[in-house]
Amino acid sequence: MFAGNAYSAYKNNSVNFASKEQLLLMILDGAVKFSKIARQGIEEKNIKKAHENIVKTQNIFYELMATLDVDKGGDWAPRLMSIYEFIVNRLMMANVKKDVAIMDEVIPLIEEIRDTWNEAYKLSKIR
């Protein structure tokens, strides 16, 4: 019981005191996790598990799209928006078709986005 409460307190504090860059990485870690759970749900023919986790992943990307400032982001921002839109659309198709192959296409993209932001975060800490 105590270990569960301690972990919960640690988790809350890590979110409450995280920088916006760290929060972005946490969110993207969640997208990777939820997309993999969704893929597993499709494999297991667990429709509810697949659907709920695809929707969680989509919601993360909808939030990323809503907070991306395309006007101030320079040349890369519209490209990033296009990638986010592509991922959301492919997730929608994976959800409709319950297709593992589509998830196998999208998960590496999500991981690459997370890894790219993680690298950018590391580089920003050096400066």
Rank of each mutant, 00 (worst) to 15 (best):
V55Y: 06
K33F: 04
K125G: 04
I37D: 12
A101E: 15
T116C: 09
N5G: 07
P78I: 12
E21Q: 11
D104W: 02
L23W: 10
V15Q: 05
A50G: 10
E105W: 04
M81N: 14
I113A: 05
L109P: 10
D99G: 07
K11P: 11
I54L: 03
N16F: 14
Y62V: 02
N16K: 15
D71A: 14
V100K: 07
F34S: 10
Q40S: 11
I107V: 15
P108Q: 15
I27S: 14
W117R: 11
R90H: 09
M1G: 13
L64M: 13
Q22R: 08
A101F: 05
F2E: 15
N118T: 12
D115N: 15
E52D: 09
I54S: 00
D71H: 14
M81Y: 11
L24N: 05
N118I: 04
K56E: 01
V88P: 04
R90F: 01
K125V: 09
K98M: 14
T57Y: 09
A94Q: 00
G73A: 07
I42K: 01
Q40P: 04
I54V: 07
F86R: 10
G73N: 03
H51S: 13
A31I: 02
N46A: 12
K97A: 08
K48S: 11
I60M: 01
R114V: 10
Y7M: 13
G74Y: 08
E119D: 11
V32T: 08
V15T: 13
